[in-house]
Each structure stands twice: as structure tokens, then as C-alpha cells.
Design a protein around this nucleic acid. Structure first.
Lengths: 204, 204
DNA sequence: GGCGTTTTGGCCACGGGTGCCATTAGCGTC
DNA sequence: GACGCTAATGGCACCCGTGGCCAAAACGCC
């Protein structure tokens, strides 16, 4: 229901046609967020801007908080493939790290931009809060990967720890990146990992 | 205002006396949460149970989500002291880790119990979401400590990374602990750190 | 043109959260 | 013992996000 709406419009055959798209809603919403801030933008305002009933917004996004995330389900599927592509003979941590790095290479020509999205998400309290739910799904993808490769269960300490720490490194990288978007995000992900390995270096 | 209410009642001199306490509210709230779940418990119900107006609840807790966290401001102050106590000649990571470990030694005789609190917080979606805001404050304490000890700014990559990773380890430990509260939480924090160091061991 | 299908969007109810303000109940003073 | 000061209380109105319900709309197909 929620997903079928716009995954592939051309596949639809009959029934009343859709009036809008996820992309159109996101663009309208980000226009308003830029003007009035996230909290200052009501769903009524977004609905008006899109030219659609407020009720309809909920058929495209589960909640107001989900709008900035866009089609995160698709993004997660991409991440799952990146992890699956890790060579079996590579150390586990390295494969995970390279997938996380690659995951954060976003096409620069998106609208809304990846910077705009993430700045909004990471700098707005209400969205910071909501983001955990998305992070949990993201970590779960890692935990399942690690579990599969080590024979553990996803809930065990190693898969959980790797998931949590991978997220931690990514978030540390984002934090620096948002302050200075000119830097390369994937490089910052690398730098965070190096920083951690250095910090924990047993020889010190 | 928000804090002054109950930090030290004996310090109050004049004005209408308070009708309740943070502890009383938390105990009443947890009773209801246990019966009807967090989402199923309305603020009206909590107010009734405490015997207080709904409006008054907001003078003790900023939001419904804050009730399970209790007096987190006090908890943070304790954490700050633990970090400050780390010897200067000890490796930075070790001092941070020991503080995190010590921070998670909670008195077993609390009401509500630390397990009840954390189970509610970590297993209720709405609270999982809200918890990031608390985590951010907790990480900031670490980031400031690391910044002070290394001469960096709290926003730099090392302080942020250490903060994020410390949180990651703690959360991984909690996740296992909640499934099996008989295990020692501080020991699990140690185990998570060992797991990470092993995972990243350069010799593998 | 009628029918089935699918989306739309209006209406209503609920609950959390906030500003406003009159009320309440101790304290210190006279 | 009354009076005023002060600070906490709690009722009221209101905004906003969210979800259930359902009739109306607009297409393809026959």
C-alpha cells in the first residue's frame, strides 16, 4: 500500500491516478523547511504547497518526521547489496567498513541534496529523535551481515557491537562533514575509523 | 525553575508548597506503564494516579518521554565527575572506558529499578527515539572530557568519535543485558570493549 | 455509459504540548 | 491574627500530529 504508490507508476493499470509523487512532496516540503524551519512548517502548509489534501500526505509518508528521510527503504536495500559484495577472504571489519564508506557516496545532483537532508535530520531535535528508528534498521542490516559471516545470531554481542560502532563512526563523520561540507564524506568515514583504531591502539 | 522544584526542598522558604515529587510521579507512572504500556498510558491517567493536575506534570518533566529518564541531569553530573577522576597518566581510552563502566553501576535498590527504566526506554519505540536527545548530552560530556585532555575542540573528530563509540559499546552491552539481566552490566560493558578491540585487532 | 478499481481528501476524535492566568497556601512582617 | 509577598498549582483554550472512517473522484475496461 504505502510502498506500491510510486515504486513504478507505469505498472498501474486502473483506478484513480495518483496526484503527486514522493519527489514532489519532498521538494515542496524542503522549500518550506528552509523558509520556516521544520517545526514551524505544519502539515497543512506542506499539503497546500503540494496542492494536495493533508490526509493524502500520510499515504506517502508515515509521519511528518519521515519526509526528510525520503525512500529510506530503497537506500537500505542498496546497503544490503554493498555488504553482500564484500569478499569472503577479506577481514570482516574491513568489508563492513568499506561498505559503510561506499554507502555514503551519494550522487551530488539529488533534489533535495544529501547535505540538506542530513543537515535537517541531524540538526533538528525532533528529527534527531526520530532518526534512531531509521538507524536501528540500518544497524540491523549490519548485524545480520556479521551474524551470517560469523555464524552468530544477529542479537549476539559481536554483531550488535559492530552495528553500533559502525553507526558511531558514520555519525562522527557526519558531524564533522556538516560543519564543512566541502570535505569528502567517504574520506571522513575512513578518517573516523583510523581515529578509532589509533585511539584503541594496544601499543599505546 | 524546572530544576529548582525538588533538588533540595529544604532550601525553599516561601510560596505555596509543592504537592508531589519527581520520585512519586515516576513510581505512579511506572505502575501504569506496567499495566497498560507506555503508549497506552495517557498523561491524564498519570496525573490522576499521582493526584495532581495534568498541567503540573509538565512542571516536573518536560514531556511524557522524559518521565522514564528521571533526573537525568543529576546522573550526567555524576558521569562528569567520574571522567574527571581519571588519572592523567592513564591512556585516554582506558580512563574513558573505566568511567563508562563505573557509570553503569547502578544501585540495585532504586524505585523504579534501573532494569525497568532501561527496558522501557530501550524497548519502546517512542522512547527509543526520544533517547537520542539524552544520549547526545551524554556523548557531549565525553567529547568535552576528551577535548580537554587532548587540546582539541569538542566538535573535532577524535572527541566526537570517542563519544559515539563509547555510546555504541554501552548500547551493545545494554542490549545483551536486557535479554539477560542476571549478567553484570559493567562486565558486559567490558566485554563489548574487548569485542571491539578484538574485532579491530590489526594482527588479524 | 456502466462497472470495478484505486486514490483522494474531508470529517471527526484523541492525545501530547503550551501559553495564559486566576487560585492556593505557606512565610515573614506588622 | 491579619496582611501582603511569593511560588506552585491547575483549569481552560488552543495548536498540531495522527489515525479511523467513508463518500467522492477519476481512471481502464467492457
Amino acid at each position: 500500500m504505502y510502498l506500491a504508490a510510486v515504486v513504478d507508476d507505469s505498472a498501474r493499470r486502473q483506478g484513480r491516478p495518483v496526484v503527486t509523487t514522493h519527489a514532489a512532496i519532498e521538494q515542496a516540503a524542503f522549500r518550506l523547511f528552509a523558509e520556516r524551519g521544520f517545526e514551524g512548517t505544519t502539515l497543512d502548509a506542506i499539503a497546500d504547497e503540494v496542492g494536495v489534501g493533508r490526509r493524502t500526505l500520510f499515504r506517502y509518508y508515515r509521519s511528518k518526521n519521515d519526509i526528510p528521510w525520503g525512500r529510506f527503504d530503497l537506500t537500505l536495500a542498496r546497503f544490503r547489496h554493498l555488504l553482500a559484495d564484500a569478499p569472503a577472504d577479506e577481514p570482516l571489519w574491513r568489508g563492513v567498513h568499506r561498505a559503510v564508506r561506499a554507502f555514503n557516496e551519494f550522487p551530488p545532483a539529488a533534489d533535495p541534496t544529501h547535505v540538506d537532508r542530513m543537515r535537517l535530520i541531524l540538526r533538528t531535535p525532533a528529527l534527531q529523535a526520530h532518526s534512531v528508528l531509521r538507524y536501528a534498521e540500518w544497524r540491523q542490516v549490519i548485524a545480520e551481515h556479521v551474524a551470517a559471516r560469523t555464524g552468530a545470531r544477529p542479537g549476539d554481542l559481536l554483531p550488535q557491537t559492530v552495528g553500533q560502532v559502525s553507526l558511531a563512526l558514520a555519525l562522527a563523520a557526519y558531524d564533522v562533514w556538516l560543519d564543512d561540507p566541502a570535505r569528502s564524506l567517504p574520506d571522513l568515514v575512513d578518517a573516523a575509523m583510523l581515529t578509532l583504531r589509533d585511539h584503541l591502539d594496544p601499543t599505546t
